[in-house]
């Protein structure tokens, strides 16, 4: 399985810049480039689908054959929809092992953009942990290796830089999901040559709008948005409530798509990574790759709507 499907060429860089230009606010909504929302990684211009998939809890199913079969269907649906980024971590129990076992069992995996993390407070064991992740996924290298939750980031980032130079990772990044760590992530983003930063952003958790998202745009750092549904809390909160009449104008046919479209409407966002255990949910989420993307005015209208519910 190759994971460098999106390796940058001059053409892809130009296409990436065109896609980025297409995301500039231009009216109430604007169309996703070529019908499918692909976004450029600023450091290379390589384009990846703007919806990926997370694996926290959902792919930690251990050895159970029935649960693995269900996740295989999710994975197949992901690649059938042209999915790219899959995000995992050694912290997610058996998720990496399950992914590694299931990837060879599904078709269309050439578009995989493999992203995982290093997560150990013992700096010396970082390289070993990353080698184990490569073994579990069945890959020679990761597309993206991130420092999980900024654990021991100063030391791990040095290893990641060396790994990038040695070709063991194509891109490097750092993640958090806690608002209280935003200040620290900001420091890392400002100081280090990150390709990616991953943090939480959704229609109700918008703290990242203040500093992280503008900083990412300024520094040319790709943004991965985690917890787009606040771990299902947003879906539970809004399901059963009516979508606005104008949801179609932002390309949303259901609440998950409405919530994802809000995120994708931010021009600094590169990819949102909702997690799911169900193939039909996966298809709904990937549906957000198509159709118009809300601009800033429309995004404010979306916020006002949900806050009024």
């Amino acid at each position: 399985m190759r994971s460098d499907r999106f390796a940058p060429t001059r053409r892809s860089v130009l296409a990436g810049l065109a896609a980025a230009a297409a995301l500039a606010p231009a009216g109430a909504v604007h169309a996703a480039a070529a019908g499918r929302d692909l976004r450029a990684i600023p450091s290379s211009g390589e384009r990846i689908p703007a919806i990926g998939m997370g694996t926290w809890i959902t792919f930690n199913v251990g050895d159970d054959a029935a649960l693995r079969a269900e996740r295989r269907a999710v994975l197949q649906a992901f690649f059938d929809a042209g999915g790219g980024m899959i995000d995992s971590s050694p912290m997610y129990g058996s998720a990496e092992e399950v992914l590694g076992a299931l990837l060879p069992q599904v078709s269309g995996t050439g578009t995989l953009f493999s992203a995982t993390k290093v997560w150990t407070p013992v700096f010396e064991s970082g390289p070993e942990q990353m080698a184990e992740s490569r073994r579990l996924w069945g890959l020679d290298r990761f597309d993206l290796m991130q420092v999980h939750n900024l654990v021991d980031w100063e030391e791990h980032l040095e290893t990641l830089k060396a790994d990038k130079a040695a070709g063991r990772a194509r891109y490097i990044g750092a993640t958090t999901s806690h608002g209280r760590r935003h200040g620290e992530l900001e420091t890392v983003m400002a100081r280090e040559p990150l390709d990616f930063a991953q943090f939480t952003y959704n229609i109700l958790d918008r703290a990242a709008e203040r500093r992280l998202l503008p900083l990412a745009a300024e520094r040319g750092i790709a943004v991965i948005v985690n917890r787009p549904f606040r771990r299902k809390a947003l879906i539970r909160r809004f399901e059963g409530k009516p979508l606005p009449d104008w949801a179609g104008e932002v390309g949303a046919a259901n609440w998950p798509q409405f919530l994802l479209k809000f995120i994708l409407g931010h021009p600094a966002v590169t990819c949102a990574i909702p997690a799911t255990t169900r193939a039909e949910h996966l298809r709904e989420n990937m549906g957000a790759l198509a159709g118009p993307v809300p601009d800033e005015a429309m995004r404010r209208r979306m916020i006002a709507y949900v806050e009024g519910l």
Partner: peptide, 11 residues
């Protein structure tokens, strides 16, 4: 927790 009740029961 990194797992669900269903996964725990299966384990």
């Amino acid at each position: 927790f990194p797992y669900t009740a269903e996964v725990l029961a299966a384990a």
